[in-house]
Design a protein around this nucleic acid. Sequence first.
DNA 1: TGCAACTGATTGCAAAATGCAATCGGATTT
DNA 2: AAATCCGATTGCATTTTGCAATCAGTTGCA
Lengths: 174, 174
Amino acid sequence: MNINHRSGCPINLSLEVFGDRWSLIILRDMIFGGKRHFRELLNGSLEGIASNILADRLKRLMELGMLTKADDPSHKQKAIYSLTEMAITLVPVLAHLGAWGRVWLPASEELSIRAELLERGGPPMWERFMDELRHEHLGTPAGPSGPTVRAILQAGYEAAVARKTPGAGCNPAS
Amino acid sequence: MNINHRSGCPINLSLEVFGDRWSLIILRDMIFGGKRHFRELLNGSLEGIASNILADRLKRLMELGMLTKADDPSHKQKAIYSLTEMAITLVPVLAHLGAWGRVWLPASEELSIRAELLERGGPPMWERFMDELRHEHLGTPAGPSGPTVRAILQAGYEAAVARKTPGAGCNPAS
DNA sequence: TGCAACTGATTGCAAAATGCAATCGGATTT
DNA sequence: AAATCCGATTGCATTTTGCAATCAGTTGCA
């Protein structure tokens, strides 16, 4: 990326990477939502990102070394975006950020569950989650069996939704 | 603040608070640099914030409940800005963010020292630092004696600077 | 008293980022 | 063959941002 930095302070440099309203949202959807395709990210996010912004941020995140792009063998024109190790190690940052936001901001109950579970799981759960992401995005060997961290978080989310609207039953939506 | 949120996701809400290039810089300077006045923040930051941006962000952070403002008894028109508990609990987030930036971004060696010390200190050091900030900004009783965490970080920074330019001797600059 | 320096801001203005709708060429599905 | 889906790109109006200049009130000093 550019060598034109405001300062060499780590927090400032991190802010130059994430100091906008969308980059971390995209990474959140990839990490916690398992999204890998342009359309998934475009239509799947709660916040409704515009397609040009999404294209711009994906490009930017690739230039920064946070994402890589590869062809999808099943769809000749589909691209698969993968997290790099640099992005995967954001998990603890996101966990802390989510924990802070859950406490201090008007987070909805259902969406807070993931943050709460991740906070309660602590560093061991983060490590396990990062290993799963490495397996999923970098092709490293699979870790221990059992439900994945993402599945645990998702199950917690769905249980919270069910508690709120008990008549809805099982909901296959992402 | 506004009730017009993009979503109730904690990470999104946090991003609505910090998803800009300056808010966290200001909090960083207050937390790690001990800055309390407009001019200190204006002239003291490495990144060179503009005065209107600083004024806008201070106002915004007050509306969000992260800062409070009080008159300085020594200067009739001086204002002292204080961190609230909401802002103080950002310390772990900043610690993680700094640790991530130190590893993955071209952080300068001197400015990385703080992040490294804070990371090595871990949660106990963060807790102690937050207690010191509570004492400083909220008037809670003082904790254990001995050098403050900020002083430890500052000493590490100055030692790193001295290592780099050995002839400079002791440097009283902030 | 007079005056310069300093206090926390505010204003005007240009540049950049954002949001939105429409569109693109190619690939796949029906 | 037609419709749909794919990852984008374009044009454009609106909003946000960054920068320089400036503001009025306060303080320190001569």
